[in-house]
Structures are given as C-alpha cells and as structure tokens.
Design a protein around this nucleic acid. Structure first.
Lengths: 311, 311
DNA sequence: CCTTGACGTGGAACGCGTTCCACACTTTAA
DNA sequence: TTAAAGTGTGGAACGCGTTCCACGTCAAGG
C-alpha cells in the first residue's frame, strides 16, 4: 500500500494525495475528505525512507563517541539531544573507540547521505581528513580546531586549568601528579593541561608522576597504587575527572594511608559527595551548541568558559 | 552522480555496476576493473537512503528513553550498543519523557519504516497498544510483560528485593522508607518493590515513608529533608539507586544528624565509594539481550537475575 | 469584455539502488 | 553430439514520496 495505490483508489492523482498528507493548500475540501477517508480505511502511512530519499534529507545526526562509559560523552550526548529533539532531529550513536577505520566509515556514511550531519565528540583521525568531508555535510567537532575552518563547540579550558594550578601553587603542594586520559602527543585537551602547567609553574611537570590513559575510577586507583609501589608519591593529584580522583582516594583509604589532595574535573556526583575541587566544563551546553551548529550547517567556533570550583 | 551515471560512463548497465559495488559474482574481471576505475575517477559512493528504500531495511534500531540522566538508561543503552554495533546496526535515540503522544509518534515511525525495530527501555503507553504495532516491526520492552506475547528482556527483580528486605528485617529496622522512581500504580517495577515488601513483612509499607518520583541525588536529598521536616524519620531508606541514597546521606551529613541505614540500587559508583548496599540489576546485559531480540525479531522473554550486594 | 491571478488537479520525471527475468554464450556431463 | 548447467550482461520494473510544469476553471480588477 503506497501513495499511488491511495491515488488510484480515491480517484485522484498522487500529487493531490501528497498534498493532503502534507497538509498543503490547493486541495478542495471534497478531495481532502475523500482522500483522508481512503487513507483511514486502508490504514495507510507514508514511508519515511522514501520521503527522505526524495527530500534528500534524513533528519538524522550521527554522533561519534569513542566510548560511552565516560561521563564526558554522556553529558555531551544529553546536550546534543536537548537541541536535536525540539528541532525534529534524531541522533544516531556511532561508537568508534578512536578507531580510524571506523571513523572513516562513519564519514563515508555522511557522504552516502545516511546522516545530514555528524558530530565528533572526539576523534582519532586528523582534522585535515575531516576537512575533506565537509562538502558532504555538516561536520562539528568538540574541541578547539585552532586555525582550521571547521565547525566546533568546545570548552575554553585554559583559564580554568590555570586557576586550578594557581590554587595548587598557592597551597604549596610539591609533588604534583597529573593523570591524563590520553597521551598529550595525540590529544589537544591533554596538551592544554600540560601547557597550563608550564604557564603557571614555568617548568615541566614531573614526568614520573604523569600518567596517561586514566579514565575511570579503577584507573585512578591503579595509578595511585603504582606510585605507591614506586615509593614516589604525589601530595596532590590533578585528574581528568572526579570519578578518577575518587578512585585515587579509595586506594589511600583501603591502605590506611594519609589522603593526598585531589582535584577532579567534570563536576561529577562523586566529586560532590566527596567534596573534591573540580572543573565544570559545561559539557551539556557544549553539546547543545554543537548540535545547533550541525543543524544550521554553520561553520563557526563557539566556546564555553569552564570554571574551577573549589569546594 | 548516481549508479546510472556510472553505468553510462563505463558502458555497462546499472545491474552490472550494482554487482561490482556489492562484490557479487557474475561479473567478468574486465567489467569489474573498468567499472571500478570509473567509480574511483568520479569519486562515486552509493546513496544509503536509496539502498535502504529498495532493500526495505534501514539497520536502524530506535531506542525510546524517558530520560537520559538516569543511569538505568545509560547502562541499558551501552548494552544495546554493544550488541548493535557488531551486527551492523545503529541505534537512534528517542527521548520520550513518558509522553504518550511522543511514544505513539515513535511507534508510527516504525510503521513508516524509519527503524527496523524499536526498544522501549520504559514506556508510558499501554502494552496493549504496543501489541498492535508488532506487525510493523520488532518491538522489545525492558520489563516483565507477564502473559502478553511481546519480546522482552528484563531483570528478575523479585528475589533480590526479597533478599534486601530480609536483610533489613534481620537487622531489626523499624521505620522503613521506600523511595520509588515512579508511582506503583503505573510502574511495574515500582509494583514489584511493594509486592516484595508485602511478601517479606506480611504487611503494607508505611505510606508516610513512601515517596514517588525520586530519581536523582537531589530528589533523595529533598525526600530526606521532607521526612525530617515532618518529624517522622525512617531508620532505613530503600532507594531506587545508589545516587539517590547518596543524596539522602548528604542531607543527614549537612545537618549533622545521625546517618540512617541506606540501601541503593544499580551498583553505581556513589554506592561503591560510600559503601552502600546495593542491588546489581545487570542492565548492561539486559540491553544486550534486548538488542539481540530486536535484531533477530524473536518474540520471547529473557530475564537476568539481579542480586543484592551487602558491602 | 478582457486580462490577470488564484485555485485545483494530473502527468511525469526525479531521487537512486536492487532485483527479477531474459538472452547469449561457454563449459561440462552424458 | 546434445542437453544441461553455469557465466556474463542488459532491460525494465520496483521500492515510494515529492515536485515541477502544464492545463483548466473561475472570480476579481480594469
């Protein structure tokens, strides 16, 4: 049962049926009623895929996420949804694990018109590669793209990182551990963390206390355990998330050791419960902005100030 | 640039081009090479929407979620994704806020072939209504559908609830508060909570200590504040999530009151940090099972045992 | 009385890939 | 030697809604 069947049965053309379905003008009352009756009698509904094909628009936005457990992505996705839903867009989750092949595959699906736009909450492939695909649809990333002309919504982290480090400095902590989620050679965000350190302290961070790939409570726990094992322990941990800081704390607690100072990020519940200073990056807002850029196909950069919260 | 253009340029028919694109047999080496060269030269990629239309399949699974902040849904979505991705399916997020109109809209989109299947992580409309739509595609729900013949993956909660109540009984707690996420008149899950109480204690729960619509840390906090204000306080809270229990705890802490006993659910990080007994519902597994049912279009019920964890 | 324009409707092409069927030719088995 | 089976390829319809264009009618403005 398709629109042409309805046309035949009702005795009108498919153009007129289409007008009725889409509530458009230039249809007489009689035709409208006749056609609506047939539609009802035969319990007809139009096919969305055919409509998408002929309109050349799917109202789908692909959202590429390296992993899902991490609250960064959860918050972003919520923000994206909050903007997508009212605008009649749906979001399609695209897990990537930073795998370049998988990401390229998603980009190609943008070319293939499976999505109207694609948002990279984070990405493994290079920005130059992304640029090449802009002609196929709107592409938005969630970090500062620097000079490159690509749509982006991101948190302006520098200030808050420097605020945090300044506070650390003022408290006279000596051994500062930095737990990063990704290698600072790869990740722009991790780089910012290090840069802010240099700016504030005028020196390099202590590499013996610098860890990468620390993203969860357990990772934090293990990092602390490792430092303890090496008998070279920090008196403060600057971590990439409150949950991670909570994991560090747990290690000290489990082993009856004096708790070090902790700094988290992302304003997670764990930080609130444990009173850990944090940095609120307003990811919900970032997601919302990213989605708006995607929908409006605007190539511009929007940033949100993040803030150090000392509890 | 479409498949017919490639056919014309290469001098073959679109059937042959299609065979080449889909790596099928019955194509000579020469034809394959010629066509592949044209495809490459003109940088052609097929249109996924057209393919979906002609195949009658989208490889999209809609996932209806009342809200996103709640970890129940997050864990389910992760589980769903873990099954969808390897099978070549993508998931489309469909926020509903339990709004029946919105849910009906999503069901209609199933009819309209926008999704191959739809998973309701929770739902406001009746099961009878859902049953009507089964003929349009696979529908899976995430709670026990009882006698109804509808695909479902869910946690078998009774045992663990009873285990929890038995423990509460054994500890001689007198005033038991139950904080539900939804009214037990509406929600099957909430009903189970009450039923297990009746079974264990042989009596009705104290309605003065029973609250509904408690889903977040702050809700827990406020519920505790309210009981305190009413000067009728529980000595134990049975809550719908560790985060909620953490919120309750926070109220007592902030007001320098003696902490009541707490029981959480969902095995969240907050419970782990604060050592709150919890119930692990294995939602990740449930999501995975639900997705498998959706993909295979099987109408059967699968359940996972949940377990009371006393820390 | 004629022109202009809004209104109502249909035809046919378009968006684009898939697939069934027919046809020709080449092997292989009998 | 011949029928049967396999290989290679094209034509055309199909999946289904949208939209441009043409054509006819009728009323309002000049």
């Amino acid at each position: 049962m398709n629109i042409h069947d309805i046309a035949k049965i009702s005795g009108y053309s498919s153009s007129t049926v289409s007008r009725v379905i889409n509530n458009r003008n230039y249809v007489s009352d009689k035709a409208r009623q006749d056609i609506q009756k047939v539609i009802k009698d035969f319990d007809y509904v139009p096919n969305d895929v055919a409509r998408d094909l002929s309109k050349g628009k799917t109202h789908n936005i692909g959202v590429v996420l390296p992993h899902t457990k991490h609250p960064y992505y959860t918050q972003l996705v919520e923000g994206i949804m909050s903007a997508a839903f009212p605008a009649g867009y749906r979001i399609v989750m695209l897990p990537s694990k930073f795998d370049a092949d998988v990401e390229m595959n998603y980009l190609n699906r943008l070319r293939r018109k499976a999505y109207d736009a694609i948002i990279f909450t984070s990405h493994g492939i290079s920005l130059k590669e992304l640029l090449k695909y802009q002609k196929y649809g709107s592409i938005v990333i969630c970090h500062n793209p620097g000079e490159l002309n690509i749509a982006a919504a991101y948190t302006h982290r520098e200030e808050s990182y420097i605020d945090a480090y300044k506070w650390i400095k003022s408290q006279n902590y000596q051994r500062i551990s930095i737990l990063l989620s990704r290698d600072y050679q790869i990740s722009a965000t991790a780089q910012k963390t290090i840069q802010a350190y240099r700016k504030t302290f005028g020196s390099e961070p202590d590499h013996r206390l610098l860890n990468t790939d620390v993203t969860t409570f357990d990772d934090g726990y293990n990092a602390a355990a490792q430092f303890h094992h090496n008998q070279y322990e920090p008196d403060i941990y600057f971590t990439n998330g409150d949950d991670i800081a909570a994991g560090v704390r747990q290690f000290y607690l489990d082993n009856d050791l004096k708790l070090p100072m902790l700094v988290g990020q992302e304003n997670q519940l764990s930080g609130r419960i444990l009173n850990i200073p944090t940095i609120n990056h307003h990811f919900h807002e970032v997601g919302k902005l990213a989605c708006e850029l995607a929908i409006n196909n605007e190539i511009k950069q929007l940033s949100v100030e993040s803030e150090f919260i000392l509890r």
